[in-house]
């Protein structure tokens, strides 16, 4: 059969695949997951950028029938599209935890997730533990962290401190983590990161009245939130998934109907129809996971949880 090439970029690798012309998004996605050995596939997606807007490859539609960039090979980013409510309960496989760790770390370093200087230092110390293992002053001599990107640029600029002073600060915490294995260190990182206000939120500029893009809409694992444009930390309003009846769009307008029929219907405009489609897609996916978490685990999940427990116990013994 005729094929076309795609390049898939994960948080730590690049892969090339030959796809059959008739393949749906799901065929490519499944192949990537199999190649990575990833079973917790429901958090992830294949992302691309078209005309400056982020989009996710649709699973049920043929790859070539989607509005993907015309390049050879076509590039996709394999990324977490949805986030768990509690990392420690939901992320079971080590590979899943590792991919989340790398993605969230990048978001924090790129300042897409705001984080106080104190917390960034603590997070950096867990990242160092994950990378270098236990601290050994004979081996980890001053300057050993110089090459590593560990703190957001904003934090580095905020203080009059040399790189060596930062290294000392991070190392003081790092030395405390002795005995923590790589996967544990990454999980500790995620447990702290998940409490940051901007973690796991997809933000979209919206306007309630035309010509005033004065608000932000945030979609996350718990629901939909509305923020002032200059405050991404605390929403003015929140709609939990369990309190929403219906979400719909028509062109650029989007409507959220609360379950409580007496409550006010929330209407707003996004920048383009494409964005509304993306918002609805994220709402459906997050709501689906929200329902799944509140049901009895499937046999597959039960097995994975048992396996993860065994694996953890085995590692602890080895360690």
């Amino acid at each position: 059969p005729k094929t076309f090439k795609v390049k898939v970029i994960t948080m730590d690798a690049e892969m090339e695949f030959s796809c059959e012309m008739k393949w749906k998004g799901k065929d490519l996605f499944d192949l990537v997951c199999r190649t990575l050995g990833l079973r917790e596939t429901w958090f992830f997606g294949l992302q691309y950028t078209i005309k400056g807007v982020c989009a996710w490859l649709k699973m049920e539609k043929k790859v070539l029938e989607q509005e993907i960039p015309k390049e050879d090979p076509t590039q996709f980013r394999f990324l977490a599209k949805f986030y768990p409510e509690k990392v420690e309960e939901e992320l079971l496989q080590e590979i899943t935890q590792h991919l989340f760790f790398l993605q969230v770390k990048k978001q924090i370093l790129d300042e897409e997730i705001h984080c106080s200087p104190e917390v960034t230092v603590l997070l950096a110390s867990y990242a160092v533990q994950a990378k270098y293992g236990d601290y050994d002053p004979n081996f980890h001599k001053p300057g050993f962290l110089i090459q590593d990107e560990l703190l957001p640029k904003r934090v580095l600029k905020q203080y009059q401190m040399t790189v060596h002073m930062w290294e000392e600060k991070i190392t003081a915490w790092y030395a405390e983590h002795r005995g923590i294995a790589r996967d544990e260190a990454e999980m500790n990182y995620l447990k702290i990161a998940q409490d940051l206000a901007m973690y796991g939120v997809n933000y979209f500029p919206i306007e309630q009245n035309k010509n005033h893009r004065d608000l932000l809409l945030g979609v996350d694992a718990k629901g939909i939130h509305v923020y002032s444009i200059n405050n991404r930390f605390s929403p003015n309003r929140s709609f939990e998934w369990s309190a929403i009846r219906n979400i719909s769009y028509s062109e650029k307008e989007l409507t959220i109907k609360p379950l409580d029929k007496k409550a006010e219907v929330f209407k707003f405009f996004s920048s383009q129809l494409k964005v509304n489609k993306l918002i609805l897609q994220l709402c459906i996916g997050n709501h689906d996971l929200f329902m799944k978490r509140r049901r009895v685990d499937s046999i597959e999940i039960q097995q994975m949880k048992a396996q993860a427990r065994e694996e953890k116990a085995r590692k602890k013994m080895e360690h």
Binding site: I244, N246, S250, E251, L259, L280, C283, H287, M291
Partner: peptide
Amino acid sequence: YFARKANHKGSYSLVDALKSKV
């Protein structure tokens, strides 16, 4: 529970989605 009426319109009923999964 997800309906696309035309290419520029879409609707998702969370209530129906919940009912269908119970």
